[in-house]
């Protein structure tokens, strides 16, 4: 049982309006490892996390977490399952009316009956782990972007989840906070042995910590493998993405009519 994947996604189809986001995505997330899901912006990586967390419902296909079909669960059981997951949102999504301390304490207060002294100890331990024990009295509006994300990480870890989902953890971070976050994700995973899914398009940072990588584009899994195998992948689309080339099979230009025709013709229209 412990060798079976923690999350299984099979034949997932999902569309928004007329736009197909996923057309038959299948992937396995192994237990106790960091799995990265990468792909260009707009391929629906965040949507995939929301599908795993049961916040969105797929048109077809299934998502299983530890053997439970997420979208077949009742609302109550789904919320119970979510206590075993943590999610780090891109914006941090801290509760703006609560202090840093109360944000981290929130999951403990609503899901456990621990005495106040123990809640305090646990919160301080989590904040110490992300290096922000001294910032506990601050409000979310007083934090920098990197600090917000670290507090959100402490909150996501408050209930010691088995699965943690990171949504673009490195976006918009300065080099120092980026380095801090990379180290934190790696260390947390090693120390707690939890299963992690990192959704990102920051190639260097993600490949440095991931055990296994899926590359998604055009609604399908384009490639998967360990970081080392992807680095030497011959597929031009994979190679363009992994090596960050501006033009290639994925065009630099959004589809548009001929440039010369556009500049010279059809005066007056935009």
């Amino acid at each position: 049982m412990s060798d079976s994947p923690f999350v299984v996604i099979d034949g997932l189809h999902f569309s928004r309006g007329d736009k197909d986001i996923f057309r038959g995505v299948s992937l396995n997330i192994p237990r106790g490892k960091i799995t990265a899901i990468m792909g260009p912006s707009g391929t629906g990586k965040t949507t995939l996390l929301k599908l795993i967390g049961g916040q969105l419902t797929p048109d077809a296909g299934r998502v299983e977490i530890d053997g439970q079909r997420v979208h077949a669960l009742s609302r109550k059981v789904l919320f119970r399952l979510r206590r075993r997951m943590g999610m780090l949102f891109q914006s941090g999504a801290l509760f703006s009316d609560l202090s840093v301390f109360e944000n981290v304490a929130f999951p403990l207060r609503v899901h456990t009956d621990l005495p106040e002294a123990m809640v305090r100890d646990l919160v301080l331990m989590k904040l110490e782990a992300v290096g922000l024990r001294g910032a506990r009295e601050l409000m979310p509006s007083e934090l920098s972007g990197g600090m917000t994300r670290r507090v959100a990480l402490a909150r996501a870890l408050a209930l010691d989840p088995e699965l943690i989902l990171y949504d673009e953890p490195f976006v918009g971070q300065d080099p120092i906070s980026m380095g801090v976050l990379v180290q934190l994700i790696k260390r947390v995973n090693e120390a707690l042995g939890l299963t992690a899914v990192v959704v990102s398009h920051d190639i260097k940072e993600t490949l440095s910590i991931a055990d296994y990588v899926y590359v998604i584009a055009d609604g399908q899994v384009m490639a998967h493998g360990t970081p080392a195998t992807l680095d030497v992948d011959q597929d031009p689309r994979v190679s363009q993405f992994v090596h960050g080339e501006a033009d290639g099979p994925v065009p630099f230009h959004y589809p548009a009519p001929d440039f010369r025709h556009d500049m010279l013709g059809a005066g007056g229209s935009r």
Binding site: G53, F79, R80, L81, Q90, S91, A93, L94, P107
Partner: peptide
Amino acid sequence: ATEQLSSMEMIGVDPLRR
């Protein structure tokens, strides 16, 4: 808009109730 409701859901708290 600031994903606070989403994050509450993912913490396992139903925002409809809370």
